[in-house]
Design a protein around this nucleic acid. Structure first.
Length: 422
RNA sequence: GUGGGUAUAGCUCAGCUGGUUAGAGCGCCAGGUUGUGGCCCUGGAGGCCAUGGGUUCGAAUCCCAUUACUCACCCCA
Protein backbone atom coordinates (compact mmCIF):
# COMPACT_ATOMS: atom_id res chain seq x y z
CA UNK A 1 0.00 0.00 0.00
CA UNK A 2 2.75 2.35 1.01
CA UNK A 3 4.38 2.05 -2.37
CA UNK A 4 1.29 1.87 -4.52
CA UNK A 5 -0.71 4.67 -6.05
CA UNK A 6 -4.36 4.63 -4.96
CA UNK A 7 -6.67 2.55 -7.12
CA UNK A 8 -7.71 4.28 -10.28
CA UNK A 9 -4.95 6.86 -10.21
CA UNK A 10 -1.82 6.82 -12.27
CA UNK A 11 1.48 8.65 -12.40
CA UNK A 12 2.42 10.58 -15.48
CA UNK A 13 6.14 9.92 -15.80
CA UNK A 14 8.78 12.12 -17.47
CA UNK A 15 8.85 9.85 -20.52
CA UNK A 16 5.20 10.56 -21.30
CA UNK A 17 4.90 14.16 -20.14
CA UNK A 18 5.67 15.53 -23.59
CA UNK A 19 2.49 14.00 -24.95
CA UNK A 20 0.49 15.74 -22.28
CA UNK A 21 2.10 19.11 -22.87
CA UNK A 22 1.58 18.69 -26.58
CA UNK A 23 -2.13 17.96 -26.32
CA UNK A 24 -2.76 20.61 -23.68
CA UNK A 25 -0.91 23.26 -25.62
CA UNK A 26 -2.75 22.42 -28.82
CA UNK A 27 -6.06 22.64 -27.03
CA UNK A 28 -5.26 26.04 -25.52
CA UNK A 29 -4.17 27.23 -28.94
CA UNK A 30 -7.36 26.15 -30.69
CA UNK A 31 -9.51 27.52 -27.88
CA UNK A 32 -7.95 30.93 -28.06
CA UNK A 33 -8.44 30.90 -31.82
CA UNK A 34 -12.16 30.88 -31.01
CA UNK A 35 -11.84 33.49 -28.27
CA UNK A 36 -12.01 31.18 -25.27
CA UNK A 37 -9.91 32.04 -22.22
CA UNK A 38 -8.60 29.68 -19.60
CA UNK A 39 -10.08 29.41 -16.15
CA UNK A 40 -8.60 27.54 -13.18
CA UNK A 41 -10.81 26.41 -10.38
CA UNK A 42 -10.57 24.58 -7.06
CA UNK A 43 -10.40 20.81 -7.13
CA UNK A 44 -13.14 20.61 -4.51
CA UNK A 45 -16.40 22.47 -4.14
CA UNK A 46 -19.31 22.40 -1.74
CA UNK A 47 -21.04 19.06 -2.11
CA UNK A 48 -24.31 20.87 -2.62
CA UNK A 49 -23.10 22.38 -5.86
CA UNK A 50 -22.76 18.99 -7.50
CA UNK A 51 -25.96 17.64 -6.00
CA UNK A 52 -27.79 20.55 -7.53
CA UNK A 53 -25.72 21.09 -10.64
CA UNK A 54 -25.07 17.53 -11.76
CA UNK A 55 -28.40 16.22 -10.50
CA UNK A 56 -29.55 14.08 -7.59
CA UNK A 57 -30.76 11.25 -9.80
CA UNK A 58 -27.47 10.73 -11.60
CA UNK A 59 -25.15 7.83 -10.92
CA UNK A 60 -22.37 10.32 -10.37
CA UNK A 61 -24.06 11.99 -7.43
CA UNK A 62 -25.67 8.87 -6.08
CA UNK A 63 -22.65 6.66 -5.87
CA UNK A 64 -19.51 8.06 -7.40
CA UNK A 65 -18.53 11.19 -5.53
CA UNK A 66 -15.51 11.61 -3.31
CA UNK A 67 -17.20 13.49 -0.51
CA UNK A 68 -15.58 14.41 2.79
CA UNK A 69 -16.02 16.72 5.70
CA UNK A 70 -13.34 19.28 6.46
CA UNK A 71 -12.27 20.28 9.95
CA UNK A 72 -14.84 23.04 9.94
CA UNK A 73 -17.65 20.57 9.40
CA UNK A 74 -18.30 21.58 5.77
CA UNK A 75 -19.22 18.88 3.30
CA UNK A 76 -16.89 19.11 0.35
CA UNK A 77 -16.56 17.00 -2.79
CA UNK A 78 -13.75 16.46 -5.27
CA UNK A 79 -15.17 17.61 -8.59
CA UNK A 80 -16.61 14.72 -10.61
CA UNK A 81 -16.77 16.95 -13.71
CA UNK A 82 -15.99 20.50 -14.73
CA UNK A 83 -19.18 22.30 -15.64
CA UNK A 84 -20.68 22.78 -12.18
CA UNK A 85 -17.58 24.56 -10.88
CA UNK A 86 -17.41 26.85 -13.91
CA UNK A 87 -21.07 27.71 -13.49
CA UNK A 88 -20.47 28.50 -9.82
CA UNK A 89 -17.59 30.77 -10.76
CA UNK A 90 -19.64 32.44 -13.49
CA UNK A 91 -22.30 33.36 -10.97
CA UNK A 92 -19.96 34.23 -8.10
CA UNK A 93 -17.81 36.53 -10.20
CA UNK A 94 -20.69 38.22 -11.97
CA UNK A 95 -19.53 37.14 -15.41
CA UNK A 96 -22.97 37.94 -16.78
CA UNK A 97 -21.82 41.56 -16.75
CA UNK A 98 -18.72 40.78 -18.78
CA UNK A 99 -18.94 41.36 -22.53
CA UNK A 100 -21.19 38.57 -23.75
CA UNK A 101 -20.94 35.76 -24.56
CA UNK A 102 -18.58 34.43 -21.92
CA UNK A 103 -16.19 31.89 -23.37
CA UNK A 104 -14.07 29.76 -21.06
CA UNK A 105 -11.90 26.69 -21.31
CA UNK A 106 -10.29 24.52 -18.70
CA UNK A 107 -7.81 21.74 -18.12
CA UNK A 108 -8.69 19.80 -15.00
CA UNK A 109 -8.50 16.58 -13.08
CA UNK A 110 -11.82 15.06 -12.07
CA UNK A 111 -12.70 12.33 -9.59
CA UNK A 112 -15.25 9.57 -9.64
CA UNK A 113 -15.42 6.50 -7.45
CA UNK A 114 -15.78 3.94 -10.23
CA UNK A 115 -14.72 0.43 -10.93
CA UNK A 116 -11.78 0.63 -13.25
CA UNK A 117 -11.38 -0.54 -16.77
CA UNK A 118 -9.67 0.51 -19.94
CA UNK A 119 -10.05 4.24 -20.39
CA UNK A 120 -11.80 4.70 -17.07
CA UNK A 121 -10.06 5.98 -13.99
CA UNK A 122 -10.92 7.40 -10.61
CA UNK A 123 -8.74 10.40 -11.20
CA UNK A 124 -8.84 11.48 -14.80
CA UNK A 125 -8.12 14.55 -16.89
CA UNK A 126 -10.51 16.62 -18.91
CA UNK A 127 -10.10 19.43 -21.38
CA UNK A 128 -13.30 21.35 -21.79
CA UNK A 129 -15.01 24.56 -22.79
CA UNK A 130 -18.11 26.34 -21.58
CA UNK A 131 -19.93 29.01 -23.52
CA UNK A 132 -22.41 31.17 -21.62
CA UNK A 133 -25.00 33.59 -22.88
CA UNK A 134 -25.59 32.40 -26.41
CA UNK A 135 -28.80 30.52 -27.09
CA UNK A 136 -28.42 30.62 -30.85
CA UNK A 137 -27.78 27.35 -32.71
CA UNK A 138 -24.62 28.87 -34.10
CA UNK A 139 -23.18 28.60 -30.60
CA UNK A 140 -23.71 24.84 -30.77
CA UNK A 141 -22.02 24.78 -34.14
CA UNK A 142 -19.11 26.83 -32.88
CA UNK A 143 -18.44 24.58 -29.94
CA UNK A 144 -18.63 21.44 -32.05
CA UNK A 145 -16.44 22.91 -34.73
CA UNK A 146 -13.87 23.83 -32.10
CA UNK A 147 -13.65 20.19 -31.10
CA UNK A 148 -13.41 19.00 -34.66
CA UNK A 149 -10.63 21.45 -35.35
CA UNK A 150 -8.83 20.27 -32.23
CA UNK A 151 -9.05 16.62 -33.26
CA UNK A 152 -7.97 17.50 -36.77
CA UNK A 153 -4.99 19.45 -35.53
CA UNK A 154 -3.84 16.37 -33.64
CA UNK A 155 -4.20 14.24 -36.72
CA UNK A 156 -6.99 12.14 -35.24
CA UNK A 157 -9.26 10.51 -37.78
CA UNK A 158 -12.38 8.41 -37.77
CA UNK A 159 -14.06 9.70 -34.66
CA UNK A 160 -17.80 9.58 -35.06
CA UNK A 161 -19.77 12.64 -34.04
CA UNK A 162 -23.07 11.46 -32.59
CA UNK A 163 -25.76 14.07 -32.30
CA UNK A 164 -29.15 14.24 -30.72
CA UNK A 165 -31.63 16.66 -29.28
CA UNK A 166 -33.28 15.81 -26.00
CA UNK A 167 -35.57 18.83 -26.18
CA UNK A 168 -36.47 21.18 -23.37
CA UNK A 169 -38.20 20.57 -20.06
CA UNK A 170 -41.56 20.96 -21.77
CA UNK A 171 -40.92 18.44 -24.51
CA UNK A 172 -39.45 16.03 -22.04
CA UNK A 173 -42.42 16.17 -19.77
CA UNK A 174 -44.74 15.40 -22.63
CA UNK A 175 -42.42 12.74 -23.96
CA UNK A 176 -41.94 11.01 -20.63
CA UNK A 177 -45.70 10.76 -20.40
CA UNK A 178 -45.88 9.31 -23.89
CA UNK A 179 -43.12 6.84 -23.08
CA UNK A 180 -44.80 5.73 -19.89
CA UNK A 181 -47.99 5.06 -21.76
CA UNK A 182 -46.10 3.13 -24.39
CA UNK A 183 -44.40 1.02 -21.77
CA UNK A 184 -47.36 0.59 -19.47
CA UNK A 185 -48.15 -2.96 -20.58
CA UNK A 186 -44.51 -3.95 -21.03
CA UNK A 187 -42.65 -2.65 -18.04
CA UNK A 188 -43.46 -5.57 -15.76
CA UNK A 189 -41.55 -7.88 -18.09
CA UNK A 190 -38.50 -5.65 -18.33
CA UNK A 191 -35.30 -5.69 -16.31
CA UNK A 192 -34.97 -4.44 -12.78
CA UNK A 193 -33.00 -1.44 -13.89
CA UNK A 194 -35.71 -0.31 -16.25
CA UNK A 195 -38.44 -0.85 -13.70
CA UNK A 196 -36.58 1.51 -11.41
CA UNK A 197 -36.14 4.07 -14.14
CA UNK A 198 -39.75 4.22 -15.24
CA UNK A 199 -40.57 6.73 -12.54
CA UNK A 200 -37.21 8.29 -11.88
CA UNK A 201 -36.00 8.98 -15.38
CA UNK A 202 -37.99 7.12 -18.06
CA UNK A 203 -35.79 8.35 -20.90
CA UNK A 204 -32.88 6.33 -19.65
CA UNK A 205 -34.78 3.15 -20.38
CA UNK A 206 -34.03 3.73 -24.05
CA UNK A 207 -30.38 3.24 -23.18
CA UNK A 208 -30.89 -0.26 -21.79
CA UNK A 209 -28.80 -2.95 -23.42
CA UNK A 210 -30.70 -5.99 -22.15
CA UNK A 211 -31.83 -8.22 -25.00
CA UNK A 212 -35.34 -8.54 -23.65
CA UNK A 213 -35.82 -4.87 -23.04
CA UNK A 214 -34.49 -4.03 -26.47
CA UNK A 215 -37.21 -5.99 -28.20
CA UNK A 216 -39.86 -4.14 -26.21
CA UNK A 217 -38.23 -0.84 -27.08
CA UNK A 218 -38.04 -1.45 -30.81
CA UNK A 219 -41.13 0.54 -31.63
CA UNK A 220 -40.85 3.02 -28.81
CA UNK A 221 -41.44 6.63 -29.78
CA UNK A 222 -38.18 8.55 -29.95
CA UNK A 223 -37.72 11.81 -28.16
CA UNK A 224 -36.20 13.45 -31.19
CA UNK A 225 -39.36 12.80 -33.18
CA UNK A 226 -41.47 14.38 -30.49
CA UNK A 227 -39.72 17.55 -29.45
CA UNK A 228 -41.51 20.88 -29.63
CA UNK A 229 -41.33 23.17 -32.63
CA UNK A 230 -38.78 25.52 -31.10
CA UNK A 231 -36.47 22.68 -30.17
CA UNK A 232 -36.92 21.12 -33.58
CA UNK A 233 -36.04 24.33 -35.31
CA UNK A 234 -33.00 24.76 -33.10
CA UNK A 235 -31.79 21.27 -33.87
CA UNK A 236 -32.34 21.68 -37.59
CA UNK A 237 -30.27 24.84 -37.59
CA UNK A 238 -27.49 23.06 -35.75
CA UNK A 239 -27.37 20.23 -38.27
CA UNK A 240 -27.64 22.71 -41.11
CA UNK A 241 -24.74 24.69 -39.67
CA UNK A 242 -22.60 21.58 -39.43
CA UNK A 243 -23.41 20.67 -43.02
CA UNK A 244 -22.51 24.19 -44.14
CA UNK A 245 -18.96 23.76 -42.91
CA UNK A 246 -18.70 20.14 -43.90
CA UNK A 247 -18.65 18.45 -40.51
CA UNK A 248 -20.09 14.94 -40.77
CA UNK A 249 -22.33 13.65 -38.01
CA UNK A 250 -24.71 10.86 -37.21
CA UNK A 251 -28.02 11.27 -35.50
CA UNK A 252 -28.09 8.93 -32.55
CA UNK A 253 -31.47 8.97 -30.90
CA UNK A 254 -30.13 6.91 -28.05
CA UNK A 255 -27.68 9.38 -26.58
CA UNK A 256 -29.15 10.92 -23.54
CA UNK A 257 -26.06 11.96 -21.53
CA UNK A 258 -25.78 10.95 -17.95
CA UNK A 259 -25.93 14.35 -16.40
CA UNK A 260 -29.27 15.91 -15.61
CA UNK A 261 -28.53 19.42 -16.72
CA UNK A 262 -28.51 18.87 -20.45
CA UNK A 263 -31.24 20.01 -22.79
CA UNK A 264 -31.65 20.36 -26.54
CA UNK A 265 -28.38 19.53 -28.31
CA UNK A 266 -26.31 16.68 -26.91
CA UNK A 267 -23.34 15.12 -28.65
CA UNK A 268 -20.38 12.89 -28.27
CA UNK A 269 -17.33 11.85 -30.21
CA UNK A 270 -16.89 8.11 -30.16
CA UNK A 271 -13.98 5.90 -31.04
CA UNK A 272 -14.26 2.27 -32.00
CA UNK A 273 -10.76 1.18 -31.14
CA UNK A 274 -9.97 2.01 -27.54
CA UNK A 275 -12.18 -0.48 -25.75
CA UNK A 276 -15.73 -0.20 -24.59
CA UNK A 277 -15.18 3.20 -23.01
CA UNK A 278 -15.13 4.75 -26.44
CA UNK A 279 -16.53 8.17 -25.66
CA UNK A 280 -13.59 10.49 -26.12
CA UNK A 281 -15.65 13.61 -25.74
CA UNK A 282 -19.14 14.42 -24.54
CA UNK A 283 -21.13 17.57 -24.20
CA UNK A 284 -24.29 19.46 -24.78
CA UNK A 285 -26.44 22.43 -24.06
CA UNK A 286 -27.62 23.37 -20.57
CA UNK A 287 -29.94 26.36 -20.75
CA UNK A 288 -31.41 26.06 -17.27
CA UNK A 289 -28.37 25.13 -15.22
CA UNK A 290 -27.17 28.62 -14.34
CA UNK A 291 -30.57 29.63 -13.08
CA UNK A 292 -30.89 26.34 -11.25
CA UNK A 293 -27.67 27.16 -9.41
CA UNK A 294 -28.91 30.58 -8.41
CA UNK A 295 -27.66 32.76 -11.25
CA UNK A 296 -29.49 34.87 -13.79
CA UNK A 297 -31.28 32.88 -16.52
CA UNK A 298 -28.48 32.23 -18.96
CA UNK A 299 -28.12 29.67 -21.72
CA UNK A 300 -24.96 27.60 -21.79
CA UNK A 301 -23.24 24.92 -23.79
CA UNK A 302 -20.05 23.00 -23.34
CA UNK A 303 -18.13 19.76 -23.65
CA UNK A 304 -15.35 17.82 -22.02
CA UNK A 305 -12.68 15.66 -23.59
CA UNK A 306 -11.21 12.74 -21.65
CA UNK A 307 -7.48 13.19 -22.04
CA UNK A 308 -6.56 9.61 -21.15
CA UNK A 309 -8.96 8.36 -23.80
CA UNK A 310 -7.73 10.93 -26.27
CA UNK A 311 -4.17 9.71 -25.78
CA UNK A 312 -5.30 6.09 -26.09
CA UNK A 313 -6.98 6.96 -29.35
CA UNK A 314 -3.92 8.77 -30.66
CA UNK A 315 -1.75 5.83 -29.74
CA UNK A 316 -4.09 3.39 -31.44
CA UNK A 317 -3.94 5.52 -34.58
CA UNK A 318 -0.15 5.50 -34.41
CA UNK A 319 0.12 9.25 -34.12
CA UNK A 320 3.66 10.29 -33.28
CA UNK A 321 4.09 13.15 -30.87
CA UNK A 322 7.34 15.06 -31.21
CA UNK A 323 9.39 14.65 -28.08
CA UNK A 324 11.48 17.33 -26.49
CA UNK A 325 15.03 17.64 -27.80
CA UNK A 326 17.91 16.67 -25.51
CA UNK A 327 20.20 19.18 -23.82
CA UNK A 328 22.25 21.55 -25.96
CA UNK A 329 25.45 20.45 -24.34
CA UNK A 330 26.93 18.03 -21.84
CA UNK A 331 29.93 19.19 -19.80
CA UNK A 332 32.17 16.37 -18.66
CA UNK A 333 35.12 16.79 -16.34
CA UNK A 334 38.10 14.96 -14.93
CA UNK A 335 39.38 16.08 -11.58
CA UNK A 336 38.55 18.79 -9.14
CA UNK A 337 40.02 21.77 -10.99
CA UNK A 338 38.15 20.82 -14.12
CA UNK A 339 34.94 20.34 -12.23
CA UNK A 340 35.20 23.83 -10.78
CA UNK A 341 35.67 25.23 -14.24
CA UNK A 342 32.64 23.28 -15.47
CA UNK A 343 30.59 24.62 -12.63
CA UNK A 344 31.31 28.17 -13.81
CA UNK A 345 30.76 27.31 -17.46
CA UNK A 346 27.47 25.60 -16.71
CA UNK A 347 26.27 28.59 -14.77
CA UNK A 348 27.13 30.95 -17.60
CA UNK A 349 25.52 28.72 -20.22
CA UNK A 350 22.32 28.24 -18.26
CA UNK A 351 22.14 31.93 -17.48
CA UNK A 352 22.23 32.55 -21.22
CA UNK A 353 19.35 30.14 -21.80
CA UNK A 354 21.35 27.16 -22.98
CA UNK A 355 20.31 23.75 -21.74
CA UNK A 356 23.40 22.32 -20.15
CA UNK A 357 24.03 19.17 -18.13
CA UNK A 358 27.25 18.74 -16.18
CA UNK A 359 28.70 15.74 -14.40
CA UNK A 360 27.78 15.48 -10.75
CA UNK A 361 28.65 11.82 -10.31
CA UNK A 362 32.45 11.99 -10.61
CA UNK A 363 32.41 9.23 -13.23
CA UNK A 364 34.94 8.15 -15.81
CA UNK A 365 35.08 9.94 -19.13
CA UNK A 366 33.64 6.93 -20.88
CA UNK A 367 30.75 6.72 -18.47
CA UNK A 368 30.13 10.42 -18.85
CA UNK A 369 30.01 10.13 -22.63
CA UNK A 370 27.57 7.25 -22.40
CA UNK A 371 25.40 9.34 -20.17
CA UNK A 372 25.57 12.30 -22.55
CA UNK A 373 24.45 9.97 -25.31
CA UNK A 374 21.51 8.65 -23.32
CA UNK A 375 20.40 12.19 -22.57
CA UNK A 376 20.48 12.94 -26.28
CA UNK A 377 22.90 15.84 -25.81
CA UNK A 378 23.63 17.76 -29.00
CA UNK A 379 27.25 18.47 -28.08
CA UNK A 380 29.69 17.21 -25.48
CA UNK A 381 32.72 18.86 -23.99
CA UNK A 382 35.27 17.16 -21.75
CA UNK A 383 37.37 19.33 -19.46
CA UNK A 384 40.59 18.01 -17.89
CA UNK A 385 43.82 19.52 -16.61
CA UNK A 386 44.99 20.41 -20.14
CA UNK A 387 41.83 22.35 -20.84
CA UNK A 388 42.03 24.20 -17.55
CA UNK A 389 45.58 25.21 -18.53
CA UNK A 390 44.89 26.22 -22.11
CA UNK A 391 41.30 27.44 -21.72
CA UNK A 392 40.49 25.42 -24.84
CA UNK A 393 38.60 22.20 -25.33
CA UNK A 394 37.36 20.00 -28.13
CA UNK A 395 33.66 20.32 -28.74
CA UNK A 396 32.17 17.08 -29.94
CA UNK A 397 29.13 16.97 -32.17
CA UNK A 398 27.20 13.95 -30.89
CA UNK A 399 25.32 13.51 -34.12
CA UNK A 400 28.27 13.38 -36.51
CA UNK A 401 30.91 12.31 -34.00
CA UNK A 402 33.21 15.08 -35.13
CA UNK A 403 35.28 17.11 -32.67
CA UNK A 404 36.68 20.57 -32.97
CA UNK A 405 38.96 22.63 -30.74
CA UNK A 406 37.42 25.83 -29.50
CA UNK A 407 38.30 28.50 -27.00
CA UNK A 408 36.14 28.31 -23.89
CA UNK A 409 35.61 32.06 -24.08
CA UNK A 410 33.71 31.68 -27.31
CA UNK A 411 31.71 28.61 -26.22
CA UNK A 412 28.49 30.40 -25.44
CA UNK A 413 28.40 32.39 -28.66
CA UNK A 414 29.18 29.34 -30.69
CA UNK A 415 26.45 27.29 -29.07
CA UNK A 416 23.89 30.00 -29.58
CA UNK A 417 24.88 30.24 -33.23
CA UNK A 418 24.86 26.47 -33.71
CA UNK A 419 21.47 26.18 -32.13
CA UNK A 420 20.09 28.73 -34.57
CA UNK A 421 21.46 26.71 -37.46
CA UNK A 422 20.01 23.40 -36.31
C1' G B 1 -22.40 -2.74 -7.13
C1' U B 2 -21.99 -7.80 -10.45
C1' G B 3 -18.85 -11.22 -13.21
C1' G B 4 -14.19 -13.21 -15.74
C1' G B 5 -8.72 -13.26 -16.14
C1' U B 6 -3.92 -12.30 -13.94
C1' A B 7 0.01 -11.69 -9.92
C1' U B 8 7.95 -14.47 -10.70
C1' A B 9 14.00 -8.77 -11.19
C1' G B 10 13.00 -1.62 -12.62
C1' C B 11 10.30 -3.41 -17.64
C1' U B 12 8.52 -7.72 -20.97
C1' C B 13 8.14 -12.56 -19.81
C1' A B 14 10.16 -18.27 -19.28
C1' G B 15 9.89 -21.78 -15.26
C1' C B 16 6.30 -28.59 -18.49
C1' U B 17 2.26 -32.86 -14.95
C1' G B 18 5.11 -30.29 -7.07
C1' G B 19 11.85 -32.13 -6.36
C1' U B 20 17.17 -29.28 -3.91
C1' U B 21 21.66 -22.93 -5.33
C1' A B 22 15.04 -19.07 -9.46
C1' G B 23 16.09 -17.95 -15.34
C1' A B 24 16.30 -14.94 -20.19
C1' G B 25 16.00 -10.44 -22.94
C1' C B 26 15.88 -5.24 -22.16
C1' G B 27 17.31 -1.52 -18.60
C1' C B 28 20.89 -0.06 -14.61
C1' C B 29 26.20 -0.08 -12.79
C1' A B 30 31.37 -1.28 -13.86
C1' G B 31 35.19 -2.96 -17.13
C1' G B 32 37.30 -4.29 -22.45
C1' U B 33 45.05 -0.58 -20.77
C1' U B 34 47.04 6.06 -21.49
C1' G B 35 41.07 11.33 -21.35
C1' U B 36 35.44 10.45 -25.54
C1' G B 37 28.94 7.92 -26.72
C1' G B 38 26.25 4.69 -30.40
C1' C B 39 27.82 -1.60 -32.33
C1' C B 40 30.11 -5.74 -29.94
C1' C B 41 32.19 -8.58 -25.64
C1' U B 42 32.83 -9.53 -20.17
C1' G B 43 31.37 -9.00 -15.23
C1' G B 44 28.11 -7.07 -11.26
C1' A B 45 23.94 -5.43 -8.52
C1' G B 46 18.82 -6.43 -8.20
C1' G B 47 13.46 -11.39 -6.44
C1' C B 48 10.65 -13.50 1.26
C1' C B 49 8.19 -15.98 -6.68
C1' A B 50 1.71 -10.14 -4.18
C1' U B 51 0.22 -11.24 1.25
C1' G B 52 -1.71 -14.83 4.91
C1' G B 53 -3.15 -19.66 5.77
C1' G B 54 -3.45 -24.86 4.31
C1' U B 55 -2.18 -29.95 1.61
C1' U B 56 2.76 -32.50 1.30
C1' C B 57 8.78 -35.56 3.27
C1' G B 58 9.14 -31.29 -0.08
C1' A B 59 5.29 -25.58 -2.94
C1' A B 60 6.94 -20.14 -7.51
C1' U B 61 4.12 -24.69 -9.04
C1' C B 62 -1.87 -27.71 -5.86
C1' C B 63 -6.21 -25.63 -2.52
C1' C B 64 -8.59 -21.48 0.30
C1' A B 65 -8.79 -16.38 1.78
C1' U B 66 -7.11 -11.33 1.35
C1' U B 67 -5.13 -7.43 -1.56
C1' A B 68 -3.77 -5.39 -6.06
C1' C B 69 -3.86 -5.21 -11.31
C1' U B 70 -6.80 -6.04 -15.66
C1' C B 71 -11.11 -6.75 -18.89
C1' A B 72 -16.38 -6.75 -19.37
C1' C B 73 -21.58 -5.38 -17.36
C1' C B 74 -23.52 -0.77 -15.31
C1' C B 75 -22.38 4.15 -16.17
C1' C B 76 -19.43 7.76 -18.24
C1' A B 77 -14.70 11.53 -20.22
Amino acid sequence: MLTQAPKGTHDILPDEIDKWYYVEKKFAEICSRFGYREIRLPVFEHTELFQRGVGETTDIVQKEMYTFEDKGGRSLTLRPEGTAGVVRSYIENGMSSWPQPTKLFYNITAYRYEKMQKGRYREFHQLGVELFGAKDPSADVEVISLMVLFFNSLGIKNLTLNLNSIGCAECRKAYNQMLKEFLADKIDNMCENCRGRINRNPMRILDCKEEGCRTYLKDAPSLLDNICDDCREHFEKVTQGLQDIGIPYEIDKAIVRGLDYYNRTVFEFVSRNIGTQGTVCGGGRYDTLIELCGGPPTPGIGFAIGVERLLLEMESQGIQIPSRPGPDIYLGSIGEQADRLCERLAWDLRSKGITCIKDIMGRSVKAQMKYADKLGARYALIIGDNEVESNKASLKDMKTGESRDISLDTLIDRLIKKREND
